[in-house]
Design a protein around this nucleic acid. Sequence first.
DNA 1: CTGAAAGCGCTAACAA
DNA 2: TTGTTAGCGCTTTCAG
Lengths: 346, 346
Amino acid sequence: MAKTSKRPVLIDVAAAAGVSVATASKALNGRHHVNEATRKRVLDAAEQLRFTPNPFAQALNFPVTGTIGVLTADLSSRFVLPILMGVEEAFGAGSTSVIISDARNDRVREQFLLQTLVAKRVDGIIVLGADANPRQSISADVPVPVVYAYTPSVVETDCSYTPDNAMGARLAIDHLVARGRRNIAMLNGEPRYDAATERGDAAVETLKNHGLGLVTGEVLYGDWSERWGRQGVQALLNSGLPVDGIFCGSDQIARGVVDELRNGGISVPHDVAVVGFDNWELFSTTSQPPLTTVDMNLEEMGRAVAEELQAAISGKPRTGNHRLPVQLIPRESTASLARGAGNPGA
Amino acid sequence: MAKTSKRPVLIDVAAAAGVSVATASKALNGRHHVNEATRKRVLDAAEQLRFTPNPFAQALNFPVTGTIGVLTADLSSRFVLPILMGVEEAFGAGSTSVIISDARNDRVREQFLLQTLVAKRVDGIIVLGADANPRQSISADVPVPVVYAYTPSVVETDCSYTPDNAMGARLAIDHLVARGRRNIAMLNGEPRYDAATERGDAAVETLKNHGLGLVTGEVLYGDWSERWGRQGVQALLNSGLPVDGIFCGSDQIARGVVDELRNGGISVPHDVAVVGFDNWELFSTTSQPPLTTVDMNLEEMGRAVAEELQAAISGKPRTGNHRLPVQLIPRESTASLARGAGNPGA
DNA sequence: CTGAAAGCGCTAACAA
DNA sequence: TTGTTAGCGCTTTCAG
């Protein structure tokens, strides 16, 4: 019968190289005790036939399968995607494939997807949360290592990576103070999010270390919207307080703040310097002026989590919640007055 | 030696049920000629042992592997994610896993990832583009079916799904005309994108069918930004033309348009009705007023592409570029004057 | 209706 | 250094 042009398998390579499958296997895998000339012959044959080993057959012989699962709470979340990209980058180049499953904020669906991942024999699982509040642990439901990203697990011995929100607040406040601002207010997001409270608390503490306090006495909490940014500015203006710096819990808030200040005829950064949070470029770079903001390095977080999972899979698990350093991205909303377009005197 | 608590395998199930592996296999897979009582015993045993078949062993016996690859040009693209979600939804529930790889707009990297996917024995590949311009075909480089989404392949016999941009423009213009607008302008995106020209051309043609023409004589092309929306409005105002409706090539443009009209003291929708494109909710719903816009049903596209790939894998391939219907989402930016907050008199 | 045995493609003892 | 052989876990003829 006609030779159906199937993929070449190891036997074909072995035959072409005039050796046994065992030798071919060893040669291909760089194992010990293979004559260099023989190895070369095998490699050439494999090349010629465009042979790629069947990963399913390989997986059958090994405890690890070369696939990991990413379970997202909500794929459409703004914070999930950059982390996913980091994960993909860390694994994608190598021989590990990344299977994604999106729970769509549904616990039942999540449990189902988890079982599916386990059935597929993933070597490990990354859980990507959409907010910073601790979540239920899945580690006990699953026979493989799990690493949590953005959202930590409530179980302290699980391994999680979350952004260092406190560090972000510290950088922001230090920056404002270094820019000569002393009358600082904070317009924060929703207090039910740990991300908000961590930033708020750290801002207060950092100010205290500078011998300062918030000009409003306390952090102003609202939601994460532009609208709240605008409202907050209104409130500040109405209060008559001498504000010269505003630290916002998110770039969206900051965007509203900057817009409303402009509407009120107040110059940013000359009269008031503004710092955002997230470095969501859609807002931070198109704002007028562009926003100084805190970047959580989410892609980096993805990479870190990927490496941590790799380590756990190879038997070197780490535990606890790791705070990933953030960085300040200085832009014009806090530019030095000397260089700014504002009043050059003083 | 101690029984290391490994996963149960088929032999274990067979033993527990007191049958041979062959029978167990048949029972589990609903094959012919298995006594109902026996089948039940096997199923119970499997349940008890929490047995899940090793997919790698299964794949070794079947031509299909139950995994498909998604190759994205740019994971961070706004258009890619919704499609990916649709794909994930269509496959994720079933037994097919979705492996993602992000080429990051790098041809070399793309080729590499492609080979990796092939090496992993995916049953098929979905190529997710980030813009509407036709792209190079990969179908010849790869021994499995390929379906293109958003970005069609230049090869006409390849199978692609793209949004029906012309339909979107038609819906938008029909809607404006139905709202009584006769002096319509179009502020479009960059002309080097097919998405822009398709929308522009269809808008002109639809107006002609209504016995109308663009108030500016021709489509105004710019880029996809808010800034261009604002500039465009300025230009229209300066021209002194009696504009009462603006169709925008994107929601970002529309957002700029609405903002600038408001700054100019012109009421939306009373004086000028505005229609956007994309239904990017970040802009379309937060705009003041919220934007009537065209939704490309990208998640639906993801589902359609997934089904098409399924079909192709099971030997029923289709070819050609399929235009996916879009829909108009009416919001306040084109509300009826009678119901609007504007001048209630006529 | 059931089971023994072959084999999917590969790796790893063990001989030679 | 190389080849022979026995599996990995499963499905599937083919006898019984």
